[in-house]
């Protein structure tokens, strides 16, 4: 157990003992991998872990726990998505306690049938801009050991997106793992069958992915949950990153960096001459 883990556990124990929160969202081991866990009793705190396998973005659960006071273990990108959720009035900042953990990047998760033996740093972590969450009530420094990366070459940037889309099963894991995809009637899940019907795979995968990209543009915090959840490993974060770049170039805006910064589409000003 690392020092960071010890510190994390003591913070969570304190929070639960003082009844500051009803529930803490954290990570636990199961087998070789790490999965989200919900800790509600001080004696369960020993389950909590924090290392470079904790890739899932726990902010995904915040909306379904809206009525409760919850603590959440948040990496830099998770913190950014909490900021976005607060800005979009999906969660109440006052009812969540953010336990920020300093993150050095996460590994790609082990996938069924993979022939890769070594652990690899996830591609999106190479583009990371915030190692610590922009909002934090508690801070655990020096979280997770620096990942030993066997593959120092950055991911291949040029790829045939259409053939990547074609692999898609449309299992919706990207949508459901995303903290910011919270619509109860998702336009690409099939609630609006004229745009994307549930069954038209692969015909409508182009619209499926591009619509999702457009909905994530300027909102995506590049936490990589979609990419790591994907069973066929479509590098979605790279696509969303490009659109975020567009926002950065045109408006100097990056999502989830501060609570006071309004998203550009919201404050769109009439401007310029034609």
């Amino acid at each position: 157990m690392s020092r960071a883990e010890e510190e994390l556990r003591s913070i969570v124990r304190k929070l639960l003992e003082r009844k500051d929160v009803e529930l803490v969202l954290g990570y636990e081991y199961y087998g070789r991998s790490v999965r989200p866990c919900f800790v509600s009793k001080p004696e369960e705190v020993e389950r909590l872990v924090w290392n470079s396998d904790c890739w899932f973005n726990l902010a995904t659960y915040l909306r379904s726990l809206r009525s409760r006071r919850v603590g959440i273990v948040a990496k830099g990108c998770d913190g950014r998505s909490i900021v976005e959720l607060v800005k979009e009035n999906q969660v109440d900042r006052g009812s969540i306690v953010v336990i920020a953990v300093e993150c050095n990047g996460v590994f790609k998760p082990f996938k069924y049938g993979s022939t890769h033996v070594g652990r690899r740093l996830a591609d999106y972590c190479r583009r990371c801009v915030t190692r610590v969450s922009p909002v934090a009530d508690y801070l655990v420094k020096k979280g997770g050991q620096a990942p030993e990366d066997e593959n120092t070459v950055a991911g291949d940037n040029a790829s045939d997106w259409l053939s990547l889309f074609r692999k898609c099963l449309k299992c919706m894991a990207c949508v459901k793992a995303c903290p910011l995809c919270y619509c109860t009637e998702c336009s690409i899940e099939g609630f609006k069958p004229d745009l994307v019907h549930r069954l038209r795979v692969p015909q409508e995968l182009f619209t499926f992915h591009l619509t999702r990209a457009l909905h994530m543009a300027g909102r995506c915090v590049e936490c990589g949950a979609c990419e790591s959840a994907c069973p066929v490993e479509i590098p979605l974060t790279r696509l969303y990153h490009e659109l975020n770049e567009w926002f950065r170039e045109n408006y100097g805006y990056a999502p989830g960096m501060s609570l006071s910064e309004a998203p550009p589409p919201l404050v769109f000003k009439e401007g310029g001459e034609d």
């Binding site: 299992c171 894991a173 959840a229």
Partner: peptide, 13 residues
């Protein structure tokens, strides 16, 4: 079920 995010990955794979 608390943990489940209801993607349908399990049934599709």
């Amino acid at each position: 079920a608390q943990r489940c995010v209801e993607c349908s990955l399990c049934s599709f794979t």
